[in-house]
Design a protein around this nucleic acid. Structure first.
Lengths: 260, 260
DNA sequence: GAACAGCGTTCTGAATAATAGAACAAATCA
DNA sequence: TGATTTGTTCTATTATTCAGAACGCTGTTC
């Protein structure tokens, strides 16, 4: 007879390499908010033995995925991730076409222009362009945000496979601002509306005082490719302005889509 | 008595997690030139068993480090690397200061402006800025090139710890163009010269017809922080122009260095 | 259309590798 | 000074890995 533990256990995936899984899970402790960890800290947080963590970090370090910070006993993620990210980035076909499109949009629209794709339930920002006289203070590539409360995210959700949306609607939609849509039924309606009119608006749903308008981009076969947005202070985004931006972005979209 | 195999073997690092090492080594097969691999291809290339690779890729896939390409039996690196690269990137202190500096330089200098750091014997490009009316066609972040034949690389080598240069000089300096410095003694002299005058020139040593001028950047304590370069068609870089660019970049460097 | 060759995937137990836990020196703190 | 806490070394036991066979599928060859 099965013990309680056995019954409660996840179905044993015999084809999962536990050592590897454990090691990769350890990397998740290294976040933007907490990028540096000592062996003892990791040991306490993960309830793995110090010697075990030492071995794993040592191996990651051999391969460049972890670096020891000079002069301290702390570790952080290594530059190898930049190297690998460069390869992932270059896998995205027609990156240069998108990049040029963003730069051109940034000349017509005095707001930050983003390109993003769907990664699970998150938007992942892949590229951005900034108009003259504006700056982006943090790096964009690899930045993520929940899809359900961002302009690009909602544009992507409105155009992606229904299964993904169905699954998302079963998760908790946490509020980021008072404007965040947290009711699944309301979000579903919103996505249908976006699908019909062809663009999404993020009205301070992720950050206070930030508004955003986004349009999904498809490849020549009609498959969802990504989404482009213009994003800035909410005071800049009256309904008139939004419609103007939609026209501009849609014009660009029509130009590049046959080449994707 | 030790067998031949035992004597020839690497000193057994007992604290290296072999399964993890092997798995990470597998990721190295996924390059820009060959980004997509099937299980059988990897099996032949690595001489690991198919079932073994299947397990490893499955586990990487669970964590987002590997993706299966839809409709095919091929795998490639996953978006998790972008996520992690974002964290590595944000670890670089004062990124926004550097970014603004590059943008300003791109307004005074009509060439591509790069910022890079030393990663082993390679330059890793971290950020770039492009003047109006110019484009960068490939993504910059995470891009690497050998240090000994690039402007930023030589600037960094001229200012880094002597041990690193000594080790580099023992490796083979492969030529990329007829201009590449492949003689260790000549490179050593060149680095001394660069150190004395404070800037480096890459005269078509990495790419034909591409010239580049670079200067090292130090933090407020005088530690090497990175290097900034201007890079473009060799015909644009006469000695006069180079000296002008050096002045401009050095002026910017003097402004930001106290804040690094 | 039968035989073959390739693929990804499933399964198992012999053999390997991982790691718990003790022990260490060195640094830090009280 | 003694008490903690740190990273690191070491090894025996145990848990995990993975070689190798087998399977079902797809596409190709004769």
């Amino acid at each position: 007879m099965a013990t309680e533990e056995e019954r409660n256990a996840e179905p044993q995936k015999y084809y999962q390499v536990k050592t590897l899984k454990k090691s990769l899970d350890l990397l998740e402790y290294f976040t933007i908010e907490h990028p540096e960890w000592s062996i003892s800290e990791l040991s306490r947080a993960s309830s793995l033995y110090k010697s075990n963590i030492f071995n794993i970090l040592y191996t990651f370090m051999l391969c460049g995925y972890i670096e020891k910070i000079e002069g301290t006993e702390k570790y952080r993620l290594g530059k190898k991730f930049l190297d690998k990210a460069h390869i992932v980035h270059s896998n995205l076909t027609n990156f240069d076409l998108i990049h040029r499109a963003l730069l051109e949009l940034a000349r017509s629209i005095p707001e930050i222009i983003y390109f993003g794709i769907l990664n699970n339930f998150d938007v992942m920002y892949i590229d951005a362009a900034v108009p003259e006289n504006r700056y982006i203070t943090k790096s964009v590539i690899g930045m993520t945000a929940p899809a359900y409360c961002t302009g690009i995210g909602k544009a992507l959700l409105s155009a992606c496979k229904p299964e993904i949306v169905d699954k998302l609607l079963q998760t908790k939609l946490s509020p980021f601002t008072p404007q965040t849509i947290t009711d699944p039924a309301k979000l579903k309606k919103e996505l249908i509306k976006i699908r019909e009119r062809g663009y999404s608006i993020d009205d301070r749903e992720h950050s206070n005082n930030v508004k955003c308008v986004a349009i999904p981009i498809f490849d020549r076969n009609g498959n969802l490719y990504g989404a482009i947005s213009a994003s800035g202070p909410s005071s800049n985004f009256s309904q008139d302005v939004i419609e103007k931006y939609v026209d501009i972005i849609q014009y660009t979209a029509r130009q590049i889509q046959p080449h994707l």
